[in-house]
Design a protein around this nucleic acid. Structure first.
Lengths: 331, 331
DNA sequence: CTGAAAGCGCTTACAG
DNA sequence: CTGAAAGCGCTTACAG
């Protein structure tokens, strides 16, 4: 109050970084002053001195626009007012040397951390490379392929089983399964969970009722056409993402089959597409926004440079959204 | 070659910034050395000295995931290997004070530039605020609402007329038009172009055949239901974006109408959705990827800090993609 | 609990 | 065409 308030640059810096070495009233006064003057620390100068930027990167090779945008918005939600910014970094995990590209990017920008989303998140070599250069990351994945602090689980296996339970309980006995690419862990988890779920209910899904798609609309059409020309025809199809499920719709329509009267269809992701199809698609809701938010929180968790939110206990649970694309089999 | 090559820090800096004040062979030698040592300048230090960061922000309040991701990838395409990074910054242009938020963001990060996409790009107050703080930007918009160097035109009016010409040439005479929100310039351009196009062919579209949607799937359903219960029923509907066109599909299906036999439908954007609908949607292709690339190029254009591509003459032309959703009217 | 010094890796003037 | 000085706005040791 009455003392000569000309707190040094250093004291201000301490307040900024939440150092305990500042008297509470000094801290409050400085904060009030900063607020009043509209002072915002320069991220570049801070970063230069910290030898680390306040940039968090979103790295992905996933083609689904809805997934990406949802994830971005979730992450931004956590980053809001934290002093961090989000940079986007798509990559092609098929290209030789893509890991070096990400490594250089991380080193050059002195990234605070990276959020890795499927399918690159499943590449052990990428994670190792990042660990090697001492760069933190969070992987979003369906299996516990890393230590808990570096991973966010999506529990795809459980959800796959939930679809199996639902369709079996409706009375279906002849199923078709369209998986994603076999190289994707999430695909084998989703499909594997489905197969296991059926098995637990005494139904074994023959391997020739399982087709490998590419997570794309077109692949959904193609595999559905193969499935639907089988005799006897399956009465229910589980497609491992919504885009392929939309492909199943197209194939069924073209063959004159009605959904759900002649064919029940279930998807995965609960993308906007799911509720835009007609009839609306029953699908597994993946809380992608939450995933993004939690991943960003985990990254900021330790050593918060400015006031950041409390990191929450990371966990997300997918669950089935029942809409209008499934019903008991007829005939 | 034989001289004591210990070019000063400063010389290296000059090479980095493409200064003309370096002898060509010195430049080449330094470049080779940098390449060899894998040296990459520190963006934070450079930015601090420049009083400006190498961050380009993508600012939007557009809900379409496809649009956003496409734009991002276009911009990243131009930014690749340029030393710039892309930060994403969604905003809510309906909220009081959103402009201040963007202003603070731009000032704090000392943004190199911003790409403004519809509909925020149409807000004159935002542009003014940015100009005021001396921050460069490129607006993507359907009308010449700014000086050429700060805008990228999408020519929606022309494309709207193209749809009119196409449908009229198929023989349609009774039309329905579902526009976007009237507050969006692109919506009135698209719709206005359509109406004008019909007028030039001697058809006047009565105002009660024009419904205002919200660019969303649901609004497409709702407005289509209103249009399709009119008597006589329109034989062709132009929806001002693909999402609403998908809504028209749903409404038509529910009413037992076949597309295109009973109803022709045209959309706008050529989003992935368009080719995933069945029948595939005829729509205006908007080269969003190109828009993103060109916007980023324009921003980097002057004073390139590292080697950047030549800025191209900015221009994009939308055009109609004919697929399977339109045919001559029957009966 | 607080301050004066040195440095993060670049750049812009300013001399030669 | 090239170099030595000072500074961008913060921080980390190091003293008190």
């Amino acid at each position: 109050m009455s003392r000569g308030w000309q707190a040094s640059q250093k004291t201000v810096s301490r307040v900024l970084n939440d150092s305990p070495l500042v008297r509470p009233d000094t801290r409050d006064h400085v904060k009030a002053l900063m607020q009043q003057m509209g002072y915002a620390p320069d991220p570049q100068a801070r970063g230069l001195a910290f030898r680390r930027s306040f940039l968090i990167a979103l790295v992905y090779d996933n083609p689904s626009a809805d997934y990406i945008v949802n994830m971005q918005h979730g992450a931004l939600d956590a980053l809001r007012d934290s002093g961090f910014e989000l940079v986007v970094h798509p990559c092609d995990s098929q290209r030789e040397g893509y890991i070096d590209g990400i490594k250089r990017f991380a080193q050059k920008q002195k990234l605070w951390g990276l959020i890795l989303i499927p399918h690159v998140s499943e590449d052990p070599a990428l994670a190792d490379a990042l660990k090697e250069i001492g760069c933190r990351y969070v992987r979003i994945a369906s299996l516990a392929i890393d230590e808990p602090a570096r991973i966010l689980l999506t529990h795809d296996r459980l959800a796959g089983a939930e679809v199996a339970n639902y369709l079996e309980s409706l009375g279906h006995r002849r199923f078709g399964l369209i998986t994603g690419p076999n190289c994707c862990r999430c695909s084998s988890e989703r499909g594997g969970g489905f197969v296991e779920g059926l098995a637990r209910r005494g139904i074994s899904l023959p391997p020739d009722c399982i087709y490998e798609g590419g997570y794309s609309f077109e692949s959904g059409v193609a595999e559905a056409e193969r499935l639907l020309t089988r005799t006897p025809r399956p009465t229910a199809i589980f497609a491992c993402n919504d885009e392929m499920a939309a492909g199943v719709y197209k194939a069924a329509l073209r063959m004159g089959l009605r959904i759900p009267a002649d064919l029940s269809v279930a998807g995965y992701d609960d993308s906007p597409l799911a509720s835009q199809l007609w009839p609306a698609l029953s699908t597994i809701h993946l809380p992608i926004h939450d995933l993004g938010r939690q991943a960003a929180s985990m990254l900021m968790g330790n050593e918060p440079p400015l006031r950041t939110r409390q990191p929450q206990r990371p966990s997300v649970t997918p669950h089935l959204i029942v809409r209008d694309s499934c019903q008991p089999p007829t005939g």
